[in-house]
Design a protein around this nucleic acid. Structure first.
Lengths: 353, 353
DNA sequence: ATGAAAGCGCTAACAA
DNA sequence: TTGTTAGCGCTTTCAT
């Protein structure tokens, strides 16, 4: 057990103030004498000292802790977001408290109440429904809250999201430019604002390219899961021949879709062009030409962190929405002999705009 | 801002003790009169009340918080582990504080010190080197610590790990049973105890099957990364023809290895049989026969949590090691026409023992 | 069935 | 340059 300031004060014969000033590194600022500093520091070195955070929080009415609430930690996107936020916190002497809600609104409410009750100084949340947390803690509470990833239309919190519309457009355009006839856009969990944005981008790109039947290309499922992808691809296959190209609203949907292709056709057709949101190294397992839109978690994290700082500083950037560009990644399409440029091509990801 | 017990006491005219008893739901236990309860509860309902956690911690010298330190949150295994642990905590009224150390021992030390300084009641850590935290906080401190995933030989903390040896054996056996000649075991970050165990299992299975040159089949790299996988596969290809089968110590290594295959051969040979540690749905992207060993994060989490409870309760199950079985998953190998059983086969994962 | 008071360890305002 | 003191909000012990 580390000693307390009072103990050290008692043992060295100095006062708590003196000891505290030294322990907090403010000795020179308050002109504590060299001798005193030496004695106290020696004592601290011998017996150790760490401020009791509970006591500090109680006194200062602040915990130097911020909360993060995400719908699904096993989703690599949120895991990376958390990782990046944690690093930002570390740099500011803060600690990050994270909760995963399993896409369950009730758990989300519980998580937020718990975090609030623990006195977090701020909250970053990727909500699984239109956020309205006033009812969880009296309206009076002035807890800074920033929404990430999912900007529900009438949310009253400042938000930081990826540019889903532009990414949907870029991804669709990339697939169209290969010349392969566009067959479908398989969408899971369509009520999410992110998915809605992606669909709008898809529609825009189609219209720009003169694809008039874009409306009927969109296939919707309620869930974002491999199962949804399987179902949608199943429906698509019933319509006719193997798709020349298709888009997926997420990696999980793509996984399900390709599983169904394998089951029905015995293999995943190599000439099919694919486009998907989310990126993962394992897309390289496919021989296909495939485009993916990757979110910039690092930028999302730092923007969200910045918004939170502003709120904490009193700047009410209320309802402001920050948008972060995706990155469009191109894979495959190098069908011929091995060539040294292949690797660098694969990595030659470029911003979508 | 919620009211404090003192405020409510003052407003209702009762004492803090009475209010506290009611607020904590111990009214009946202490025979507080109906009338009193009613008045106080009404006040609480109107103005809200949550215990100030900082004050509570200060008084009780306990934070109802436990810390988790992992080397890499973007690794799906650790993300799931965290998610499971968080759920266990929630069930016990605890809160989980997580830090990711990026496989950096210095960051690990920092993280652990921070968590300790914040007064966590216990620590679960997946260390990136032989753990010895005595020097971080005086030996005297009696902070319960449980190690997960990585049991370094001379660690003095109780640990909960997957059965890497048995999994290595099962995975190797599965690949051997296909009849494909075994070409190599590509290993990243070989100094990790997990990897060492996997290699031992590999060796055992080889010997059992009469494969005498197993020693030279093992290819080692210092890092666990796609780059390592690329390098190792590059070396393997220089030795001769495309591998009939190979094993990888992790998904990242497999990703790198397949990338190199694509670069060199223009494609990933479909007849190559693969085996890898870690599992992911996207392995289905490969047409190949492929086996994967999946850790049971849920069991690891609950065992680790249980060990921590024991330590907190004073049961010194010192240096005990708990082992959790892997799950061996079989994919591919259904090369012919579509058949309805394909899906259930794919999911027919079974325990490795 | 209810109340009073001490004290957890820290900070900040004020004294000297 | 150093010391004293009053809380922060809770729990607990001991009174009534």
């Amino acid at each position: 057990m580390p000693k307390t300031v009072a103990e050290i004060a008692h043992e060295t014969g100095f006062s708590v103030t003196t000891v505290r000033l030294i322990a907090n590194g403010q000795a020179s600022k308050y002109r504590i004498s060299e001798a005193t500093v030496k004695i106290v520091e020696e004592q601290i070195r011998r017996y150790g000292f760490v401020v009791n955070h509970a006591a500090r929080s109680l006194k200062l009415m602040r915990t130097d802790t911020i909360g993060l609430v995400v719908p699904e930690l096993s989703n690599a996107f949120f895991a990376r977001l958390m990782s990046d936020l944690e690093e930002l916190c570390r740099g500011s002497g803060l600690v990050l408290l994270t909760s995963s809600t399993n896409e369950n609104p009730d758990l989300e409410d519980r998580a937020i109440r718990t975090l609030w009750a623990r006195g977090v100084d701020g909250l970053i949340v990727a909500p699984c429904r239109t956020p309205d947390y006033g009812r969880l803690f009296g309206k009076t509470t002035k807890l800074p809250i920033v929404v990430v990833d999912r900007a529900y239309p009438d949310s009253r919190y400042p938000s930081v999201v990826s540019d889903n519309v532009e990414a949907g457009r870029a991804l669709t355009r990339a697939v169209l430019e290969t010349g392969a006839p566009l067959t479908a856009f398989l969408c899971g969990q369509t009520e999410l604002p992110t998915i809605a944005g992606r669909i709008r981008g898809f529609a825009a790109a189609c219209q720009e390219a003169g694809v008039t039947n874009w409306e009927e290309l969109i296939m919707r499922a309620a869930e974002n899961s491999a199962e949804a992808g399987r179902t949608l691809m199943g429906q698509l296959l019933e319509r006719g021949r193997p798709p020349a190209s298709f888009l997926c609203s997420s990696l999980m949907v793509l996984e399900g879709a390709t599983q169904r292709l394998k089951e029905r056709l015995g293999r995943i057709p190599v000439e099919t062009v694919m486009g998907t949101f989310d990126d993962q190294e394992s897309l390289d397992f496919l021989p296909n030409r495939i485009f993916s839109a990757r979110q910039n978690e690092e930028e999302l994290a730092s923007q969200a962190f910045a918004r939170l700082r502003e709120l904490r500083a009193g700047k009410m950037s209320q309802s402001a929405q920050t948008t972060v560009p995706f990155q469009l990644i191109r894979r495959g399409g190098v069908r011929s002999a091995p060539r040294s440029g292949a690797a660098s091509f694969r990595r030659g990801a470029r911003a979508s705009d």
